[in-house]
Design a protein around this nucleic acid. Structure first.
Lengths: 233, 233
DNA sequence: CTTGCAACATGGTCTATACCAGTATATAAT
DNA sequence: ATTATATACTGGTATAGACCATGTTGCAAG
């Protein structure tokens, strides 16, 4: 074995992680501790850690420590589906908490996006979504009242897409999505159990029925570190 | 000056090269000499050199010295990740600057994504992209060497897709994209003229040929406040 | 019980030094 | 002149310490 010491240590740490010695999110021992364990100087140990960070296996935070990097929740966007199905497809337990649920007059923006007539009322819902009880996103969904007429709050909240199809025969056609990134506000940070200023993946989606009518306008803020979209095209 | 010494030295050396103090192929003074000139330890000087090597501005050879690599210049882009079209659609002038352009051994991650054999070399390009001269994104593109063999730097940089089709008969098939959000590192923040920690929209894309072979792996970091990704599905 | 602050731990940077394995070059032997 | 060899120089690796800014934590004051 002619390779440098720091490469050997790199391999040992990687094997230890793969063997389950530390799980995702776990903090591994500090550089100073590991340097002692491997009988090398801290600088050499840092070189080993560095290569693992570059591979995305570890993450470093000043003052906190070094952690096994997060595997992100992935959303396959090949079809138009809801949050519930996305979570189930990944073997995660989906849940959500409704923050607000009101019928009201739409904002100008909502009215435009949903192509509403002047006097139309909408249902606006705010929800926090969880995957395996970890907050994944905060979303505001606006739906024309006529679409959800006759449906219970539970039906709308739990799985709108499925309910629309089975109870009203309304089938989603296409969707337009706008993705950007920003920072978490104080309020959103609290809901998502992150810090203000943390990275947010913003998704604005307008969903259309097969006949072209827009039926849902959703603004979602995903926790950047816990979520990832996957697109196949 | 708030930035670390090795970043400052990095900038000074880079400026000196751009100012013509050394030309492509020239050998720059040894690490020991430069360490004395900049009044720092050799390890610190090495850190500065390291960042320049990672950007492809310098090349190191044991026993011979450190040399200015053939790099540089700006070029108009078209189509590779659809950046140009996106900019034009918004009435903005697209441009880009090549940060590095180098043949090297792939990282573990790159090797996996591109399904490379053990000894395969890759071409790795780093670019900053602008819209109306405002930095929009920083991207790292990795391409197996065999794909671009025989092609000029200009052909690869300006329109990889078109060149592959006309010169090699290789036609892109599908692509897989992963979108997430994170915070800007110190280095990326500098390139994009934002602050460290600012919101970043990350896009990782693997492009496949029609026969299913992956031929390009691109990691792009968009400035969250300046960019929006629009999808129709 | 909360709040504020001090002490501690952590990764980031930097020093000064040492030895190694390649490369280049001057020197000696042919 | 050519060849072999010793020497000097290069970047690569490694050490053992040091200080800094930031994050965490426990303890004291309210």
């Amino acid at each position: 074995m002619g390779s440098p010491v720091y490469i050997q240590i790199h391999n040992e740490i990687k094997k230890a992680i793969e063997a389950g010695k530390w799980s995702v999110g776990d903090r591994i021992p500090s550089e100073r501790e590991l340097a002692v364990q491997f009988h090398v100087s801290r600088m050499t140990l840092r070189q080993a850690i560095q290569t693992l960070v570059e591979e995305g296996i570890l993450e470093r935070f000043v003052g906190s420590g070094t952690f096994v990097a997060n595997q992100k929740v992935q959303e396959k966007m090949s079809g138009v589906t809801g949050f519930t199905d996305l979570m189930l497809a990944q073997g995660k337990k989906p849940s959500s908490k409704t923050i607000s649920y009101h019928v009201m007059s739409p904002s100008l923006s909502e009215s435009e996006k949903l192509k509403l007539k002047d006097d139309t009322q909408v249902l606006r819902m705010e929800r926090v979504r969880y995957g395996d009880d970890v907050p994944i996103s905060f979303e505001v969904a606006t739906i024309p009242l006529e679409i959800v007429e006759g449906l219970s709050k539970q039906e709308v909240s739990e799985s709108l897409y499925r309910t629309l199809e089975t109870k009203k025969g309304l089938i989603p056609g296409h969707a337009k999505q706008m993705v950007s990134a920003s920072s978490a506000s104080e309020r959103i940070a609290e809901y998502l159990d992150i810090k203000r200023g943390d990275a947010i993946l913003r998704l604005r989606q307008i969903s259309y029925l097969q006949d072209g009518r827009p039926f849902e306008y959703v603004r979602t803020q995903y926790v950047g570190e816990r979520f990832e979209f996957v697109l196949e095209k």
